[in-house]
Design a protein around this nucleic acid. Sequence first.
DNA 1: GCCAACGTTGGC
DNA 2: GCCAACGTTGGC
Length: 152
Amino acid sequence: MHYWLMKSEPDAFGIDDLQARPKQTEHWDGVRNYQARNMLRDQMKKGDLAFFYHSNCKEPGIVGIVEIVRQAYPDFTALDPENPHFDPKSTPEAPRWYMVDVRFRKRFKRTITLTELKNHHALTELLLLRKGNRLSIMPISAEAWNYILELE
DNA sequence: GCCAACGTTGGC
DNA sequence: GCCAACGTTGGC
């Protein structure tokens, strides 16, 4: 059992969009960073929980929790020339990119903002807060997970 | 919209 | 294998 943080731009796909999907479930496509892909593909397991993080928006921060309900399988958006995430180097025989399915679990009553997270010394180890970290998928320690839950 | 901090690409 | 050029991310 691992904990994660997954970033998405709410203008493109926010937690409200996930909640509105059939079965409140959607595939998490578009991961195009090798480090993030490796973690997603090799370490994310069915039943893992992840914070849903809104990035590149007015109030960046953690807005809720999702559950991994299907482990990594090839990201079909990489194979579709019409898709903005198309990658000509990915093929059905040798898929380069992967995705998981996530299901909505909880929306926080408020956004736990990036600004707020930075103010907690207990979270200095958090990858999210490290300078220059742009990973869209990152692991969260159990300690940090529980600490952040208390902030809601 | 700016720009720092990367990651990727490709010439050599 | 180096590294300059380029593209992307994402906070501000």
